[in-house]
C-alpha cells in the first residue's frame, strides 16, 4: 500500500519537475529577451530592468535562475501577460476551472452513458445489439470534435434556437467570482434570481458538454465492452455459472466489480484526451476556459502566457492521471499480490 503511494508520488514529482524545467526553458527558447519572457514586462526602463534582473536572479548561474523561478512560481508570481497586463496566476485561476468544469460534466455524462451501454454490448457479444453499439461508437470516436461542435451549433443554436450560441452564461447575470466553477458560483453568490441563472448556465453548458461527451462516451463504451468480454469469458465466471448462479447473480456479484476495476486505470489515461477536446470545443463556443485563453495567447504571441498556460494544463493532467491511477490501485484488492510460481 505505502509502496504504491510512494511510487506514484515519486512518479508525479519527477514528471512535474520535467514540466517545470521545460517551461523554464521556454523563456530562453522563445524569441526576445529571457527576462521579458519570464516577467512579461515589455519595454523595460533601465531601472526596471535592474530590479527585475535582481528578482529573477538573471546574473546568477542558470541553476540558480531555475530555483528562483520555481520559488516565484510557488509564491504565485507567474509573471504578467503581454496582452492584458494582468498577473498570469490570476488569469489561469479564472480560466482553468471553467475547462475543468466542462470536462468533469462531460466525463460524468460519458460514464453514465458509456458504461451501461458497454455492458450491454459486451453481454450481447456478436449479436445485433453489439454490432449496432460498436458501429455507433466507431462513428462517435471518429467524428472530429470541432466539426461536431459546429454541427451542433448549426442544428441546435441556429436552425432550432433551443440553446444559446456561445458563452458561459447570459450577460444579464452578473456572477461574482468565487470558485471559478459556474454552478457553485451561482449558488454561493447572493443574486436574487438564482434559479433563472442556474437554468441559463445549464442551457449554455449543454451543447459544449455534448460535443465533448460524444467522443468520450465512445471511448468509455469500447473500454467497458472489451473489459466485459474479458471478464465474462474468464474462468471464474464460468466457474460461477457452473455453481448454478443465475446470469444476473453472476453479473452483479462477479461481473460489475471486476469490469470497473479493469476500466478505471484505463480511464485515467483518457484525462488528456478529455481536456484536449474540451480546449478545442471552448474555442468554438467562446467558453472562457483555458483552451480559449491559451489559443488567444498563441495568436498574440503572448510568450509568458503560453509558458504559464502550458505548465498549468500539463501539471493538471499529470496530477489527475496519477491520482486516478493511484486510487484505482488502492481499491483493487489484488494489488500487492505476490507473483506465484507454478509447476
Amino acid at each position: 500500500m505505502i509502496r504504491y503511494i510512494v511510487r506514484h508520488i515519486n512518479l508525479m514529482l519527477f514528471t512535474l519537475f520535467a514540466l517545470s524545467v521545460a517551461s523554464f526553458a521556454l523563456a530562453y527558447l522563445f524569441p526576445a529577451d529571457p527576462l521579458v519572457n519570464l516577467s512579461g514586462v515589455q519595454r523595460l526602463s533601465e531601472e526596471e530592468f535592474n530590479l527585475l534582473s535582481e528578482k529573477y536572479a538573471m546574473n546568477e548561474s542558470i541553476i540558480i535562475q531555475y530555483l528562483q523561478y520555481m520559488s516565484l512560481l510557488f509564491q504565485g508570481d507567474w509573471g504578467i501577460s503581454f496582452s492584458s497586463g494582468l498577473p498570469l496566476g490570476d488569469e489561469i485561476k479564472r480560466s482553468l476551472p471553467a475547462s475543468i468544469e466542462l470536462s468533469a460534466y462531460s466525463l460524468v455524462i460519458s460514464m453514465l452513458v458509456g458504461v451501461p451501454l458497454g455492458f450491454f454490448a459486451g453481454l450481447r457479444h456478436n449479436k445485433h445489439t453489439d454490432y449496432v453499439l460498436l458501429g455507433v461508437s466507431v462513428a462517435g470516436y471518429s467524428v472530429p470534435v470541432f466539426w461536431l461542435a459546429l454541427l451542433l451549433i448549426m442544428l441546435f443554436a441556429l436552425q432550432l434556437p433551443l440553446f444559446p450560441l456561445s458563452g458561459r452564461i447570459s450577460l444579464l447575470f452578473d456572477i461574482p467570482y468565487s470558485t471559478g466553477f459556474i454552478l457553485p458560483d451561482i449558488w454561493l453568490s447572493d443574486i436574487n434570481n438564482k434559479t433563472a441563472a442556474t437554468i441559463n448556465a445549464i442551457e449554455h453548458m449543454i451543447l459544449p458538454t455534448l460535443a465533448i461527451s460524444v467522443v468520450n462516451t465512445a471511448i468509455v463504451l469500447r473500454l467497458t465492452r472489451s473489459a466485459v468480454l474479458d471478464v465474462m469469458g474468464s474462468d471464474f465466471v464460468q466457474a460461477a455459472y457452473s455453481r448454478g448462479l443465475t446470469v444476473s447473480q453472476v453479473i452483479f456479484r462477479h461481473g460489475i466489480r471486476n469490469v470497473l476495476l479493469r476500466i478505471l486505470p484505463l480511464l485515467a489515461l483518457q484525462t488528456s484526451t478529455l481536456l484536449t477536446n474540451a480546449m478545442i470545443v471552448e474555442v468554438i463556443f467562446s467558453w472562457p476556459g483555458i483552451g480559449n485563453w491559451l489559443l488567444q495567447a498563441i495568436y498574440q504571441r503572448d510568450f509568458p502566457a503560453i509558458r504559464a498556460g502550458m505548465l498549468a494544463v500539463s501539471a493538471f493532467v499529470v496530477i489527475v492521471t496519477v491520482l486516478i491511477d493511484l486510487f484505482a490501485r488502492l481499491i483493487d484488492p489484488t494489488q500487492g499480490a505476490p507473483r506465484r510460481g507454478s509447476l
Binding site: 474468464s234 474462468d235 448454478g244 448462479l245 443465475t246 456479484r253 462477479h254 484488492p333 489484488t334 506465484r340
Partner: peptide
C-alpha cells in the same frame, strides 16, 4: 438445468486460483 447444477452437480476446476473471483473475499 441451472437448478440441477446448483443443487445436484458440482464442479471442481483444475486451476483453483483462476476459478475464483479475484475481487471478492
Amino acid at each position: 438445468r441451472r437448478k440441477i447444477m446448483r443443487n445436484e452437480i458440482a464442479v471442481v476446476f483444475q486451476n483453483p486460483l483462476k476459478s475464483l473471483d479475484p475481487s471478492a473475499t
